[in-house]
Design a protein around this nucleic acid. Structure first.
Length: 572
RNA sequence: GCGCUGGUAGUGUAGUGGCUAUCACUAUGGCUUGCCAAGCCAUAAACCCGGGUUCGAAUCCCGGCUAGCGCACCA
């Protein structure tokens, strides 16, 4: 299996290591070793280039521990759980709510437990008696402070930290929609059974963007920039009918209603741009729409960017229209207004009926209770004013019939400058660890060179952990001096260099092939004579001879793909 | 969480109750060579953890951890 060969190389060369290995590794936790950590950081930085710099979404950093109220509002405490029951006889484990779904609609633990008891549901495997219904929340729980009862949870996504900052963010962005904010950071899910290395981790890195948009207008101002991008889509309809993916431009997919709106379309295209830019080949990439029943409770539309690995299609990015679910939930729980006042282009003049309590009647009649009666009257719906004589109001728990003489209606015309809207959220959510793994798997190639096996990691130069190897042909004498000088010059130009003088030259080339170093500079005897070196290209194994003067610019140009390898120097 | 199969130097492995635990690659130092894993010498490096059985356990038994696969799970 290719997965095993990738992990073998990754462990041996310092990309990925099982965490806490000396104490017996723990499933779902992996270290990024020296090369893995650089690779991952470079992927993250390319992500920042796209979302922070190009899109202009500022990055924030919120705590990885969140307070209980936040996750109560977000629904994670109630919904991020599995109800589990096991058979006392055969030990098999089941989703309790699944077993009970035929006899009644219950989602709480007690409710489901009652159903199971009332209908005497037995183990579907062996008919044995079922045990207690347990809940298993996928969030890691902890307490805050030394002797505190205050509960905290490790965040299962970075998103909530951005949602709860919404009022501050709105002010920062000067009260205008749309705007975006991003966060790259760790998230934690106490998976029941993590599998497949870094594909399902208990601690992992998410890069998430939350884009807050006007719910009435989800057209994207720069939609034209990406609308011709052709995506491979796997819409719900095609999945249900057992058909294949379709290739379609973002423009047409939105037009045909396959993608819900321009904002979703724009961000699908952006995900495509990022993933292919970082080195995922388009033929290994598709966007699969969530089916209705798998869609999270908050989402209106959701697509997974999936890549084809040895393990099958694996989700790398989720792109969801989360609607106003999150902001409304936090507004309700916290009591803090999460709406945005959206101004109209021109103020609208609206005419409406207004209720005006007649205080000169209410005052003498109700004395100090008059104000409360007036408040109650103000709460009436103006369109029902003709029923005044029949309407009841409730004041201090007492119900009373309204006397028409208490109120006066007037038709007023008002200038309305805008309205309060609850923003919707478009959210691309990237699993960085999976992307790094996918890059390794896609890059790893095994080829035969003159009968010998060559392992080569064809990482794109923009993510390769080492960009250039500097190798003196001999380990002694003047060559070392020159080589060290070349390495130093490159380092001063922010190039990731590894100087290596250990072993034969062939061995060193292969070593660097395995870790994906795109170019190797070799200093040989001729270097001392005419101030030139050779540059070897990883993928072709070809070599050119170039001058040491300007070596830094040459390498920079090669790494950026701005100059062509065979044109920079003479082929050796 | 269940089932099956595995876990021996950094990597891949041999070893079915008694060895100083096999071999190769890798790594480090040296000699030699001097542009694609060459050769020679030397060195370093391992029985997943815990119990049990036995005079004696890498080997057999039990439990745990862990890996792959299948099931379940994946808001």
């Amino acid at each position: 299996m290719k997965y095993e060969r990738v992990i073998e190389l990754a462990k041996r060369r310092g990309f990925l290591w099982p965490s806490f290995e000396i104490y017996g590794a723990t499933a779902g936790f992996w270290d990024f070793g020296p090369l893995g950590a650089i690779l991952k950081r470079r992927v993250e930085n390319l992500w920042r280039e796209l979302y922070v710099i190009r899109e202009g979404f500022f990055e924030i950093e919120s705590p990885t521990i969140g307070v209980e109220d936040m996750f109560a509002a977000s629904g994670h405490i109630d919904n991020f759980v599995d109800l589990i029951v096991d058979c006392k006889k055969c030990g098999e484990m089941f989703r309790a709510d699944h077993l009970a779904q035929d006899v009644g609609k219950e989602s709480t633990r007690d409710g489901v437990a009652k159903l199971i008891k009332a209908h005497n549901i037995r183990c579907p495997e062996c008919g044995g008696e079922l045990g207690e219904v347990r809940t298993f929340n996928l969030m890691f729980r902890t307490t805050i402070g030394p002797s505190s009862e205050r509960v905290g949870y490790l965040r299962p996504e970075t998103a909530q930290g951005m949602f709860v900052d919404f009022p501050r963010l709105l002010r920062f962005y000067r009260d205008k929609l749309p705007f975006g904010v991003v966060q790259i950071g760790k998230a934690y899910r106490n998976e029941i059974s993590p599998r497949q290395g870094v594909i399902r981790l208990r601690e992992f890195t998410l890069a998430e963007a939350e884009i807050f948009v006007d719910p009435r207008d989800k057209s994207h101002p720069r939609f034209d920039e990406v609308s011709d991008t052709v995506l491979r889509l796997y819409p719900e309809k095609e999945q249900l009918r057992g058909k294949d993916e379709i290739e379609i431009s973002v423009k047409n997919a939105v037009k045909k209603g396959i993608i819900l709106n321009q904002f979703m379309g724009y961000h699908l295209a952006l995900v495509h741009l990022f993933l292919t830019g970082v080195g995922i080949k388009p033929e290994n990439l598709r966007f699969r729409q969530h089916k209705k029943e798998e869609m999270a409770h908050y989402a209106a539309d959701c697509w997974d960017a999936e890549t084809l690995l040895d393990l099958g299609w694996v989700e790398l990015v989720g792109i969801a229209d989360r609607t106003d679910y999150d902001l409304k939930s936090h507004a309700k729980k916290s009591g803090v207004d999460m709406g945005v006042f959206v101004r109209y282009g021109k103020p609208k003049v609206v005419e409406r009926l207004r209720i005006k309590p007649k205080m000169d009647v209410l005052g003498p009649k109700f004395k100090d209770g008059a104000a409360k009666v007036a408040d109650a009257l103000m709460g009436l719906r103006p369109e029902r004013l003709d029923e005044l004589g029949k309407e009841m109001i409730e004041v201090d728990g007492k119900t009373m019939r309204i006397d028409p003489s208490w109120v006066e209606c007037e038709r007023v015309s008002e200038e309305v400058h805008g309205e309060k809207v609850a923003p919707h959220v478009i959210e691309p959510s990237y699993g960085i660890d999976r992307i790094v793994y996918a890059l390794l798997e896609h890059s790893l190639a095994e080829e035969a060179v003159e009968g010998e096996k060559r392992l080569v990691l064809r990482l794109p130069p923009r993510v390769a952990p080492i960009q250039v190897a500097v190798l003196p042909l001999l380990t002694k004498g003047d060559l070392v001096e020159v080589a060290e000088e070349v390495a130093s010059v490159l380092r001063k130009n922010a190039t990731l260099v590894e100087y290596d003088d250990s072993g034969t030259i062939g061995r060193r080339y292969r070593r660097h092939d395995e870790i994906g170093t795109p170019f190797a500079i070799t200093i040989d005897h001729q270097s001392l004579e005419d101030n030139t070196v050779t540059i070897r290209e990883r993928d072709s194994m070809k070599q050119i001879r170039v001058s040491i003067d300007g070596i830094s610019d040459t390498i920079r140009g090669l790494l950026d793909g701005k100059i062509q390898f065979e044109r920079v120097g003479t082929l050796v």
